[in-house]
C-alpha cells in the first residue's frame, strides 16, 4: 500500500479497513488480524497498528474481546452509518474541490449525472 507520509499513517490504515467493511470484503463479526500481524502486513509500526484498532474501537466500528482478538462490529446500523460517513466525506471533498475551480451548481450536477451514467454503462 502506498502511503502519504505527510498524513497520519493510522488514519490511512483505518480508511482501508473501513472501506473493506463498507464494501463487504469484511463481513460483520469477521475477525481482524492481530495488531502485530496488521503491522507486518502493512509494513507499519506496531504502535501505529495498535492505535488503528483503538480508534476503530472507540468509534464503534470494531470491538475487542480480550484473548480472542479484534472483530468487525455486528451492528448493521453502525456499518450503515459508517457507509454514510464515508460517502459524505468523499462528497464534501469533491464539492470543495469542484467549487475551488469555479463550477456552478448546475454545471456540477449535470457533470455528475453524465459521469454516473457512463460509469453504470461501463459496468454493464
Amino acid at each position: 500500500m502506498k502511503y502519504d507520509n505527510a498524513i497520519p499513517i493510522y488514519l490511512q490504515v483505518i480508511r482501508v479497513i473501513e472501506r473493506d467493511i463498507v464494501t463487504g470484503r469484511l463481513a460483520p463479526g469477521d475477525k481482524l488480524p492481530s495488531a502485530r500481524d496488521l503491522a507486518l502486513v502493512h509494513g507499519i509500526n506496531p504502535n501505529t497498528a495498535a492505535r488503528v484498532y483503538r480508534e476503530l474501537e472507540q468509534s464503534g466500528v470494531c470491538f475487542t474481546r480480550r484473548g480472542l482478538g479484534t472483530f468487525v462490529t455486528e451492528d448493521e446500523g453502525r456499518i450503515r452509518a459508517l457507509h454514510e460517513e464515508m460517502a459524505d466525506d468523499i462528497v464534501s471533498r469533491f464539492v470543495s474541490e469542484i467549487m475551488e475551480i469555479g463550477m456552478t451548481r448546475e454545471e456540477t450536477i449535470s457533470l455528475l449525472e453524465k459521469r454516473i451514467e457512463s460509469c453504470s454503462k461501463a459496468e454493464n
Binding site: 502519504d4 507520509n5 505527510a6 498524513i7 497520519p8 499513517i9 493510522y10 501505529t48
Partner: peptide
C-alpha cells in the same frame, strides 16, 4: 514523534 509531525504539522519525516 512521527505522528506529531504528521498530525500537528502536516509534514512527513522526509519533509
Amino acid at each position: 514523534a512521527t505522528d506529531t509531525l504528521r498530525e500537528e504539522q502536516g509534514k512527513s519525516v522526509a519533509d
